[in-house]
Amino acid sequence: MSMVPHHLIDILDASHDYSAGMFFHDARRATDDVLHRGRVPVVAGGTGLYLRWYIYGKPNVPQSSMDVTSAVWSELAGFRETGKWEEAVQMVVKAGDPKARHLSMNNWNRLSRSLEIIRSSGSPPSAFAIPYNTFTKHHDTDQARDLDYDFLCIFLASPRAELYRSIDLRCEEMLADTGGLLSEASWLLNIGLRPSINSATSAIGYRQAMEYLLHCRQNGGESTPQEFKEFLTKFQATSRNFAKRQITWFRNEKIYLWVDASQPFDAVVQFVCDAYHDCDARVVPESLEMKRESCILTSRDLKTYRSENKVFLGDDDCHHVLDWIRRTQQK
């Protein structure tokens, strides 16, 4: 990271919330700054909705005042604390947003935002024009013309089983180093935050780690190898499910070129450079192309997928983590 300037890192306190609208303004500002200096911005990510708004523009939805945000927080607090997701959804539906029924389970941020929009404007989010929908009605979405910037959008994909294996291993590595995710989750708890109450504590990995550490604290800083492995399994499964949703999302985003990231690194980099310098080269060669349809086919073959841990093979492999928990979580 020291060789290339990075932006939008450490810009917000962990106790504050963040949204696609905030990202739109921050990312566009950073983009303009990079372009003004004669450089090329590279946007790496990420969350499909955030990138869609960044590319096509954000809906003209009213910004919630602090009073409205606080009031909505209070309205949903009881539901959130007792885990009554369905009841909370029904309340938002009755308030005026029937599409709240289609939100993913426990997506409290999206549910809160929907209610904020209703309380601020009297209308649900769907009442406001979405630039992406407007653009796709009048343009081929695989063409980047008439957008604010000249975008080159590339989706790096891998064969699904290979992707899942790498995700599982990455989750193990994040937990093997107790100075990383676990320490950060512990710090979030120490400053008074709880799982799923804002953007930071809802993030995959942080939410599961905070829930696990809360359980450990309730047991006097103790945990068994079995409990740790159950936490690891949940973390891995949630991460894989997120990757699956991302693939589904980007499969429908025609502006992206799909490149097989499992191919030789130098070949992938060369294609990206060629595509940037020459618009005529923006056709993925067969040797590098990842077919969008292949994701549908391979998903059928993954019903029997099982994690094969590489780091935490037996009980002894997690003793250093349990020792760290014993030393730090006796709250």
Rank of each mutant, 00 (worst) to 15 (best):
I325K: 06
D260Y: 03
K137E: 13
D146E: 13
F265Y: 13
V72S: 01
C273S: 09
A161N: 07
G314I: 04
T31D: 01
Y256V: 01
R145P: 00
A44W: 08
C279D: 06
Q263M: 10
K94N: 08
Y132I: 07
R101W: 08
L189T: 01
A100C: 03
I154K: 00
D17M: 03
A14K: 11
H277W: 12
N241D: 12
R300V: 04
V34H: 01
A95K: 09
W324P: 02
D13R: 11
L322G: 01
L214Y: 02
S112W: 02
M1P: 05
L181E: 08
I197F: 06
Q218W: 10
C216P: 06
T238R: 11
E230Y: 09
W53Y: 08
C295E: 13
Q263V: 00
A237M: 07
S123V: 07
A157R: 15
F151I: 05
P59K: 05
A261W: 14
S299V: 10
A237W: 07
N241L: 09
R28S: 07
L182T: 04
N241W: 09
L182I: 13
F235W: 03
N190K: 14
E162V: 15
I325N: 05
L152D: 01
Y206N: 12
S121C: 08
I247K: 06
Y305R: 05
R165D: 14
A185W: 02
M174Q: 13
E289G: 01
W187L: 05
Y18K: 00
P5C: 07
V93G: 04
T304N: 15
S123E: 15
S65W: 01
P159Q: 09
S19M: 02
G46S: 06
P62S: 09
H320L: 01
Q143F: 11
R160G: 02
C273R: 08
H138E: 11
P131T: 02
I247H: 08
P59N: 02
A127S: 15
S158I: 02
N133W: 03
R39M: 15
L214V: 09
T238K: 03
T233V: 08
W108A: 02
D33K: 14
V269Y: 05
L175V: 07
N109E: 09
H16R: 14
Q226I: 12
G205V: 04
A144V: 05
A144M: 11
P264W: 03
E116W: 09
Y206R: 12
N252H: 11
S15W: 11
G192F: 11
L147S: 03
T224H: 01
S239C: 04
D323E: 12
